[in-house]
Simulated scan of single mutants.
Amino acid sequence: MGLPADQIEDLRSLMEDWKNELLVYKFALDQMDTKFSIISQEYNLIHGHNPIEHTKSRVKSFESLINKLVRKGCDITTSAAKEHIHDIAGLRIVCSFMSDIYNMVEVLKQHEDIKILKVKDYIKNPKPNGYRSLHLIVEVPVYLTNRVEHAKVEIQIRTIAMDFWASLEHKIYYKLNNEVPNQLTDELKEAADIANYLDEKMFHIRSKVDQ
């Protein structure tokens, strides 16, 4: 459970200080957005195929940040947030094919300024509800006027079909306040399997075209 709304309101006086402290995460996302734009364009020139359909980035809201610190039993400080919360900055990469996802990871491994801290492969090992995506926690340097900060960024890489399913699944859970009947969870799992079948089918078709 997070903090009640009235307690969060009492903490809003901290918000401006936190915005300044955590601005580095916005800069980290700006750098990653530029990096993936360059990767996408160069990959297209070399291979004749753009692996990235679109990207979306966000910095976690003040309220979400406070609630997550409370759930983790951490102090309500920016230092605790930086140490214990790894998805303050989030970047979602939507790719055309499953193979593009792993190609993007291999490309990132070649960038010396990016340190990959953790990999969670929910494509090879889907969550019980059917969720599929590849999650990375990376650390990137942010060059400020008088110092270098290192910020963690969570990167989620998925296909169009995975993103479509995850988006609708989130809306359904939000609509039902996370109280989803078993029948619907079973249908959502079936839909996830269908989306995975579509990914595999489209990759098979593309492989035939590339022969």
Results as ranks from 00 to 15, higher is better:
152 K>V: 00
92 R>I: 13
162 M>C: 02
148 V>Y: 01
139 E>T: 07
151 A>Q: 10
153 V>I: 15
129 N>V: 00
133 S>K: 04
171 K>T: 12
111 H>P: 14
146 N>R: 11
149 E>P: 12
107 V>R: 14
94 V>T: 08
141 P>I: 07
171 K>P: 04
107 V>S: 12
192 A>R: 07
153 V>L: 15
137 I>R: 01
102 Y>D: 05
170 H>N: 00
171 K>M: 14
125 N>P: 11
102 Y>W: 01
139 E>F: 08
97 F>V: 14
128 P>E: 11
109 K>N: 12
129 N>P: 00
193 D>K: 03
157 I>C: 06
128 P>C: 10
118 K>S: 10
139 E>P: 07
156 Q>H: 04
121 D>I: 05
107 V>L: 02
189 K>E: 07
148 V>A: 03
150 H>L: 03
114 I>K: 01
147 R>I: 08
106 E>F: 03
136 L>F: 03
130 G>C: 05
180 V>R: 04
110 Q>P: 05
144 L>S: 02
142 V>Y: 01
93 I>Q: 05
130 G>M: 01
156 Q>V: 15
125 N>K: 03
134 L>I: 06
115 K>P: 03
191 A>L: 14
130 G>Y: 02
118 K>E: 08
136 L>M: 13
93 I>Y: 13
108 L>C: 08
167 S>D: 12
106 E>Q: 08
165 W>Y: 08
104 M>E: 08
172 I>C: 06
185 T>C: 03
152 K>E: 09
158 R>Y: 12
100 D>P: 04
151 A>I: 10
124 K>I: 00
92 R>K: 09
115 K>N: 08
